[in-house]
């Protein structure tokens, strides 16, 4: 059976300012199933944003084929079906909001799709509810905080009723509070509404929340595994120019000094438990 999103050895070339041809994606093979929560990690220039733009046909591969629900992104006739199926949220919330009032902005996509008016009303209300912004329905967009703006942007995508949302570093420009708000919304969309999530990020802690982590480097996939596995392959991560989540880093240092530590620890809570175990065994 075909995967929901399937990238089949795709290459993407572009010309830089000096006119030289550069390869952003170099034979990428990625399959994503429906309902998954996938994080894509990578250093600057690893091609992760370029890959994100391929998933809803903003960019089309130079070579190879990318399909969404079996629809080829290179097919112009399917363009709007693909974009409606895979929504996209970008880094800067200020540059994605179109309207001056929250609910009008959320209504933008269904308006474009020609949804009947009563249905738009319902979709807008549902979408605002889903991102917890109902209270701000009639507020001016520019008066919101960064996290709130980003949640409105996500709401604007949900109103299209997509099956998948690709988020390209949605928290990069936010403060810690806004980051938390946005991550909470993303988890909720995946768990409660069953929306497939592809989260492009370079935040280790955010990637750790996904079901699966794909690590990219120089336009290729170098790792594709659950977070518990990926984050303990530290050598490879360092080679890709990435860091390791702090709990893992701490436990690794302790292991170097002779402490007995099991692999697979990821969150702060798990780390605390592992440390408690060591302390207990030391006391005996």
């Amino acid at each position: 059976m075909n995967s929901f999103i399937s990238a089949d050895s795709i290459k993407f070339e572009y010309k830089n300012i000096e006119g030289q041809t550069q390869l952003a994606l170099d034979g990428l093979n990625i399959k994503i199933d429906k309902g998954e929560f996938v994080a894509v990690l990578g250093h600057n220039g690893s091609g992760k944003s370029t890959f994100a733009k391929h998933m809803n046909a903003i960019l089309v591969p130079t070579e190879g084929k990318l399909t969404v629900k079996g629809m080829d992104t290179a097919d112009d006739d399917l363009l709007y079906d693909i974009r409606q199926c895979v929504g996209m949220v970008f880094q800067n919330p200020d540059n994605q909001l179109v309207a001056t009032v929250v609910e009008e902005d959320v209504a933008f996509a269904p308006e474009n799709l020609g949804v009947p008016r009563e249905e738009i009303r319902k979709r807008v209300d549902d979408a605002l509810e889903a991102v917890g912004m109902t209270k701000y329905k009639l507020h001016a967009t520019y008066k919101l905080s960064g996290g709130q703006k980003q949640r409105v942007a996500i709401g604007g995508i949900i109103a299209m009723r997509p099956e998948c949302i690709v988020l390209d570093e949605p928290t990069a420009m936010l403060d810690p509070v806004g980051r938390k708000e946005v991550m909470k919304s993303i988890r909720m969309l995946n768990r409660d509404l069953g929306i497939t999530i592809v989260l492009i990020t370079h935040h280790m802690n955010e990637a750790a929340e996904a079901d699966r982590v794909i690590v990219m480097s120089k336009g290729k996939v170098i790792m594709d595994a659950p977070p518990k596995e990926v984050f303990w392959r530290t050598e490879e991560l360092y080679d890709a120019g990435l860091s390791v989540p702090q709990p893992v880093e701490l436990l690794l240092l302790m292991r170097k000094d002779g402490a007995e530590i099991e692999e697979g620890v990821l969150t702060v809570e798990e780390c605390a438990e592992a440390l408690a175990k060591i302390i207990k065994s030391a006391r005996k």
Binding site: I58, R83, M88, F90, Q96, F108, A109, N112, A153
Partner: peptide, 20 residues
């Protein structure tokens, strides 16, 4: 950036557009 974001939300001018 806004233009790309608008395209992602299926903007294609006034053709077949409804209003809230």
């Amino acid at each position: 950036e806004l233009a790309v974001a608008m395209e992602c939300r299926c903007y294609r001018g006034s053709v077949g557009r409804t209003r809230l």
